[in-house]
């Protein structure tokens, strides 16, 4: 639970930035950052004000080859275009790209479930603070297929709603409420879905967000990449 009391909120934000929360608590804070501006500003306050403490760690020379490894990796990964407002949330983005290693396993699954002439994009969605792939989305000329890998269910009287933000777009766009089966197909392919787009799933009232924008916490997020 994210407290409403400003004092408690500030303590929680401070503990989050210090890093003393366990993975589950920290994940809850990360997810809430997307929809809670007070929490976001409290976290920014601590990140900025505690940062001088990092000078207590002595600088050290990274092992040789580190830059070369980075250089090789950025040739494959395009920078994401800027997005603003609701999505301008560093912590969510931090986690959007976590665990590319696990993508290999998902890719194998994707190959197993899709026809060879089909999709050309894939996205792996994870909870913001975890590495465990929870949803896989594949997309191509014929449309989009998203499927739960974890059998996760939304809370009672709530639903999972899928959102896309096109590269360069300022606004998430709803792709619809995901049926209880944990699988959804959309055809034709939504135009927002191309290389560099982001897919996210939020918790919304049954029937979807009343505002055309996410109103609940972002519980899964992932980047769309070309296969």
């Amino acid at each position: 639970m994210i407290p409403e009391n400003p004092e408690e909120l500030h303590v929680l934000a401070g503990e989050y930035v210090l890093g003393v929360l366990d993975a589950a608590e920290a994940g809850e804070v990360t997810a809430a950052l997307a929809t809670n501006p007070e929490l976001r500003s409290a976290v920014a306050f601590w990140e900025e004000n505690l940062e001088p403490l990092s000078t207590l760690a002595a600088p050290a020379e990274p092992p040789p080859g580190t830059w070369q490894a980075i250089e090789a990796r950025i040739k494959e990964a395009a920078p994401k275009p800027a997005v603003y407002g609701f999505w301008n949330n560093v912590s969510i983005w931090r986690w959007a790209t976590v665990g590319f290693a696990a993508a290999a396993a998902v890719l194998a699954l994707w190959i197993a479930v899709t026809p060879p002439s089909g999709p050309s994009f894939v996205a792996v969605l994870r909870p913001p603070q975890q590495d465990q792939p929870a949803w896989v989305a594949t997309a191509g000329r014929d449309g989009l297929l998203i499927r739960s890998l974890s059998a996760a269910k939304p809370p009672t009287d709530r639903a999972f709603e899928l959102w896309a933000i096109a590269p360069g777009s300022a606004q998430p766009r709803s792709l619809g409420v995901i049926p209880a089966s944990g699988e959804m197909r959309l055809s034709p392919l939504p135009s927002d879905l191309r290389n560099g787009a982001t897919l996210a799933i939020s918790i919304e009232p049954t029937g979807g967000s009343p505002t055309q924008q996410p109103t609940g916490p972002i519980v899964y997020v992932g980047s769309v990449g070309t296969v």
Binding site: E48, S54, I70, A77, K80, N88, V90, T97
Partner: peptide, 25 residues
């Protein structure tokens, strides 16, 4: 650094907080 490469577009240098942003990541 790969993450900085991918997400730098969401950074804005309003308060000169670039070093803190990197430290945070």
């Amino acid at each position: 650094f790969v993450q900085v490469w991918q997400n730098a577009a969401v950074f804005s240098d309003e308060r000169g907080a670039g070093a803190a942003w990197l430290t945070g990541i």
